[in-house]
């Protein structure tokens, strides 16, 4: 009975029950066959090492070596000296910026009205906005493309505009969800306080609601900006022959040029890292929580 209690104390103090093992060598041998909860992590940890972390090192290796296997930064120098490549980078940034901006402009009012307006906390409406996320994006883009070709006649006339429309259509739900999650948690008493202190509705919105929804805006941006820089399938499907960063990887890949493909990957990874750092600073929470919230 005493030993049971001792064990229990160990649990209560937060230590795992296997701690006892180390007290006695004999006991270790016996208890090693015991199953430990921590060990459950091992398969996933090994998997992450080999198939998530290792690929990044492989990409790093290819980006910083030339065909002979010598270390060089020549690949990067060539990228930044190539006006075409720089043009692609600028074009992708423009596509991503515009997509993010339009997503934000469409999603913010919708999210706000659902969280605080007439559709206050109506879960069905939120579901309606998020539902398209579950449908295969290539099929959704096909649908949008059919509509656009009906309206415009010839898709090739406005490749840039069509790209932006299809991107916004594709990513809008990913912007609405984090915005809604942030605004819905906004305390109503703050709005009432602003009203009591004489703020007009407009002032309340710009001085209270908008600043407090910045975390949601930032995590929405992180979920839309990067995919719209890299999702070259959308461009392909609306016959936009201009390249974005993602298409560069695709074309280098088809040409078996892994070194330059890796350079693009590294540049994208740096951009991702910057966005993540900025967003963590603004939202003050780890990316884990952000994603956890987004999952619903």
């Amino acid at each position: 009975m005493i030993s049971v209690n001792a064990k229990r104390c160990q649990h209560r103090s937060g230590a795992d029950h296997e701690v006892i093992i180390y007290e006695n060598r004999m006991e270790t041998k016996v208890k090693k066959s015991y199953f430990s909860r921590k060990q459950l992590m091992i398969p996933y940890a090994v998997f992450l090492c080999f198939f998530v972390v290792l690929p990044l090192f492989v990409v790093l290796y290819y980006a910083f070596t030339n065909g002979d296997g010598n270390v060089s930064i020549h690949n990067f120098v060539r990228f930044f000296q190539n006006s075409k490549a720089i043009g692609t980078l600028v074009y992708s940034l423009a596509v991503a910026l515009l997509t993010t901006l339009f997503c934000l402009l469409l999603a913010y009012p919708a999210a706000y009205f659902m969280a605080k307006g007439v559709f206050r906390k109506n879960h069905t409406f939120l579901m309606l906005f998020v539902l398209p996320m579950w449908i295969n994006f290539t099929l959704r883009i096909t649908a949008m493309k059919e509509i656009l070709s009906l309206v415009e006649g010839n898709l090739a006339m406005h490749p840039f505009l069509n790209t932006i429309i299809c991107m916004v259509y594709d990513f809008l739900p990913f912007m609405i969800l984090p915005l809604y999650n942030t605004i819905v948690r906004l305390d109503d008493s703050l709005l009432e306080a602003a009203h009591d202190l004489g703020a007009t509705k407009r002032q309340t919105f710009f001085k209270v609601v908008l600043p407090l929804s910045i975390p949601g805006i930032i995590s929405g941006i992180t979920m839309v900006f990067l995919p719209s820089m890299t999702n070259y399938v959308v461009l392909d499907m609306v016959y936009n022959s201009t390249y974005i960063m993602g298409s560069l990887i695709g074309s280098y890949f088809s040409a078996y040029d892994w070194h330059n493909g890796s350079v693009i990957s590294i540049i994208l990874l740096v951009i991702i890292l910057l966005i993540t750092l900025i967003s963590d600073k603004f939202t003050g929470q780890s990316a884990n929580e952000r994603q956890g919230g987004a999952i619903l």
């Binding site: 990409v59 695709g250 890949f253």
Partner: peptide, 13 residues
């Protein structure tokens, strides 16, 4: 957080 293109490309090589 990674771009899917990069995940796919790096997995392939």
């Amino acid at each position: 957080v990674n771009a899917d293109v990069v995940t796919g490309f790096s997995m392939c090589i």
